[in-house]
Design a protein around this nucleic acid. Structure first.
Length: 477
RNA sequence: GCCCGCAUCGUCUAGCGGUCAGGACACCACCCUUUCAAGGUGGUAACCGGGGUUCGACUCCCCGUGCGGGUACCA
């Protein structure tokens, strides 16, 4: 078979916002496609009306767009295999189910949920695997009459004998004894397909070359293989990626509080940092590079290098990467990105602030806190010691006085000269400059730590700086 | 119950029979320094257990243990 074009898809069910687990699966599928110069497709798997949460579809698209995981085909953008929403493709599944029944690879079943439950209990009691006992397979004529009289019925896959096996891109060789596998329901009594039928039909029709999905699907892959065989289709490559675990080592899930990825945007995380962080959850480059732009990831990523073990998401790692990605941004990009976190500021103002901020942000949201004393009034927090620790009254007074004097005389243009003059006073007082300078930080910023104080004064201007210095001086009595 | 998968520092990982078991995050120390950061240097810290195979196992095989997943007319 000729090397087919690589086509991957992300196929979420619209049951809620995306968290890091689902997004990572999407990312791997996107990276695999982009690495190969192939196509990435978004398909919505909404075959369960009961679990459907309205609005989720738009949320998923927004998340993908925000992260930069662009899709070539899917809802809204369309494509050659439109529609990309399964609830709009019901007739297709129905036709395929009929074909399976006609060929003897599937059969109708009218067993009630109660009988099924009873059957499973009995099997369990006998230490047997739970699977359908094919009661209806042996009475198809009767089942046909029951259906004609309006009895609820489903179509079940007739699981063939033998062994199902495949070479999983991340797991290696995997095999199952078909005898342990259930005759899966393919068409529900409401006429909707189950995941199993829909996914196989769509992946084939949409020419998906690599099925990349979370590893909870491993046990049902034999059913899918049986379906490909029954239809006479070639099966795609399968890559089952491991789960992403929370700090409790439990799989990330919507209940249990896994966060909507979009919330990280509001918190000041960069899409590129998130992409970098989750790519590292299970994938490694093979050399020692760990900071990647999305572009670099596309170049370097291969499914073969995805680890098979589940990974615990570490927020500290994201923080680190986010700071690095922020520092790698251009000033122009930061001016834009900071608009949300420094509301009411002009581009020029943000441009002035960025050199001070850059090395100090873990998230963009830190800008709000860091810049507050420069964009508003200094607040005198009674919890802040003044004079600070290790600095006596006299030294504090001297520091403020020299600063006032220097600013009045020399202004704020020559920051180096200003710094020298102040430092000389600290040294003369025999106090470490690291301690003495805190006096100025509290005076100007209201806290002993923050943006560099001389640059901060330059930003505030002479009048405002002097006013704050005099205010502080007054507090010292 | 039955089936499947996974197993290296606290966390993410490299390793694909012979390494002082490497890197990153976090943590600690020091340096730099106008605070805080950023940056630099160094440090603490790991092969789940037991059997094999082999001259030699983190690496291959088996068993156990732990964890995860599946076992639905949910995906």
């Amino acid at each position: 078979m000729a090397a087919a074009r690589v086509r991957t898809r992300f196929a979420p069910s619209p049951t809620g916002a995306l968290h890091f687990g689902s997004v990572r699966t999407a990312l791997f599928a996107w990276l695999a496609a982009r690495h190969a110069g192939g196509d990435f497709i978004l398909r919505i798997e909404d075959t369960d009306q009961e679990r459907y949460i309205p609005g989720t579809e738009a949320l998923i698209i927004e998340t993908l767009n925000w992260l930069g995981l662009d899709f070539n085909e899917g809802p809204e953008v369309g494509g050659p295999h439109d529609p990309y929403i399964q609830s709009l493709r019901i007739a297709t599944y129905r036709e395929h189910a009929d074909r399976l029944v006609a060929d003897g690879n599937a059969y109708w079943c009218t067993c009630t949920p109660a009988r099924l439950a009873q059957m499973r209990d009995a099997q369990r009691a006998r230490s047997e695997p739970t699977r359908y006992d094919r009661h209806c397979l042996t009475r198809q004529a009767e089942v046909a009459r029951e259906r004609a009289s309006g009895m609820a019925a489903v179509v079940r896959l007739r699981m063939p004998d033998g062994v199902s096996e495949w070479d999983d891109v991340v797991r290696g060789h995997v095999s199952f004894a078909n005898a342990d596998i259930d005759d899966q329901v393919l068409l529900k009594s409401d006429g909707f397909p189950t995941y199993h039928l829909a996914v196989v039909v769509d992946d084939h029709l949409m020419e998906i070359s690599d099925v990349i999905r979370s590893d909870e699907w491993i046990p049902s892959t034999p059913k899918h293989l049986a379906l490909y065989a029954a239809f006479g289709w070639d099966a795609p490559r399968f890559a089952h990626v491991p789960a992403v675990l929370g700090p409790d080592h439990q799989k990330l899930s919507k209940r249990r509080g896994a966060r909507n990825v979009l919330e990280y945007g509001e918190l000041g995380y960069l899409p590129s940092a998130i992409v970098n962080a989750i790519a590292l959850l299970g994938w490694s480059s093979g050399d020692e590079q760990e900071v990647f732009s999305p572009q670099e990831l596309c170049e370097r990523f291969t499914l073969e290098r995805v680890n098979a073990a589940a990974a615990v998401f570490d927020p500290k790692r994201l923080d680190d990467l986010n700071g690095i990605h922020i520092r790698r941004m251009s000033v122009d990009d930061l001016v834009e990105a900071l608009e949300f976190h420094l509301p009411g500021t002009s581009k020029e103002t943000r441009r002035l602030l960025i050199p001070m901020l850059r090395e100090r942000m873990v998230t963009l949201a830190d800008a709000t806190r860091l810049c507050a004393p420069l964009l508003g009034e200094v607040t005198v927090d009674p919890g802040v010691e003044f004079p600070p620790k290790k600095v006596d009254q006299a030294t504090a007074v001297a520091m403020i006085d020299v600063c006032i004097e220097a600013v009045e005389e020399g202004g704020l243009d020559d920051q180096a000269a200003l710094l020298e003059r102040i430092r000389a006073v600290a040294e003369g007082a025999g106090v470490k400059s690291r301690d003495a300078f805190r006096v100025l930080y509290v005076a100007i910023l209201g806290t002993p730590a923050g943006l560099p104080v001389i640059e901060a004064m330059a930003f505030l201007g002479k009048d405002q700086s002097l006013q704050r210095l005099h205010q502080a001086r007054a507090r010292l009595g």
